[in-house]
């Protein structure tokens, strides 16, 4: 009996000592973008003195995400941020977590109907709209454009394209074609080349996903049409920045994955320390935190690189 109490006491002590709030973040896939999110998550965890767990499936895989989400719920973590690959499929699991009192927020991709407390991410429609505006300026409101994307069903792709289209609605810019490469970089390149062939009078490319820009840039470069075909694209991977530097890509919409990761942990931390209601009172009424985009162009590239270095995530290329 004595021995039993001793074990119990040690166990209890151990738990108290180990216990520090744990926050889980579930991303979408193994990708540079999500590495930056991870950096933000870790930095926030360190700054706030909490434990963080970051998980991404190898490829976009809603099933793997769900399993991970459920196992985090089972572990009883203190808060979860998730970027659902399928906004509807996660709803039941999120509802269950909320019932169990685990705060859940979304990042990068939203699922408003799930009852999640907050969405932190790029407002893809706005970002697409900014891309459209940028294209409008580059083409002086007139020209022919082809869009390259990796999905015709994913929300972020659809919203970016819609924003882009709405921004150029009242101009003489015409969208000739939308090409879906199903997230295959080699196919994206093939399609960009084919599009250059099919439309010799093409004036611009809009690249929706991170690899679309470089594919279009390579095709344009090989065809000797640098500057003649303008490229506006998304994200700031090293290859994109290299093309920006060379002037092949005229503008890219730099999302702020680091900020998303950092803010996710910060918001969850607040919820667990101050309570959910108190935290929500501090946030915008529509419960959306738009992290915004940086429009990176050849002109402001150096400033951008310096800024990234200050954040501790220098981009080398």
């Amino acid at each position: 009996m004595k021995r039993f109490f001793l074990v119990l006491v040690i166990l209890l002590l151990g738990t108290v000592m180990i216990y520090a709030a744990t926050f889980a973040v579930i991303g979408k896939s193994v990708h540079p973008y999500w590495s930056q999110v991870e950096q933000g998550v870790k930095a926030a965890g360190k700054a706030l003195g909490v434990k963080t767990q970051f998980f991404v499936p190898a490829k976009e895989d809603i099933n793997a995400q769900l399993q991970m989400l459920e196992s985090f719920i089972a572990q009883g973590v203190d808060g979860i941020a998730i970027a659902p690959s399928d906004p509807t499929a996660v709803i039941p699991a999120i509802k269950k977590a909320l019932e169990l009192g685990i705060p859940i927020i979304t990042l990068d991709t939203d699922t408003p109907d799930s009852g999640r407390y907050v969405y932190i991410g790029t407002d893809n429609y706005t970002a697409g709209y900014i891309a459209g505006e940028t294209m409008k300026k580059l083409l002086n409101g007139k020209g022919k454009v082809v869009i390259g994307t990796g999905s015709l069903t994913a929300m972020n792709s659809l919203q970016r394209m819609q924003g882009f289209k709405d921004a150029i609605k009242d101009t003489e810019i015409e969208i000739l074609d939308t090409l879906n490469d199903e997230e295959d970089g080699a196919r994206a390149l093939s399609m960009a080349e084919s599009a250059l062939n099919a439309h010799p009078d093409l004036d611009g490319f809009f690249g929706v996903y991170a690899y679309n820009g470089p594919s279009q840039a390579l095709a344009v470069k090989n065809a000797g049409k640098v500057g003649k075909v303008k490229i506006v694209c998304f994200d700031t991977t090293p290859d994109i920045l290299q093309y920006v530097k060379e002037g092949v890509i005229q503008a890219t919409m730099g999302q702020k994955p680091y900020m998303m990761g950092y803010l996710s942990v910060a918001v969850l931390f607040n919820m667990s320390k101050l309570g959910v209601t108190n935290t929500l009172m501090m946030l915008p009424k529509d419960r959306i935190i738009d992290t915004g985009v940086d429009v990176v162009t050849p002109e402001n590239l150096d400033d951008y690189l310096k800024y990234m270095e200050e954040l501790g995530i220098p981009v080398k290329f």
Binding site: E182, G185, A186, Y211, P214, L218, D239
Partner: peptide, 12 residues
Amino acid sequence: RLSQGQPGVGGT
């Protein structure tokens, strides 16, 4: 061809 090694290329 892509001037880069891409871990996601070649699915299917």
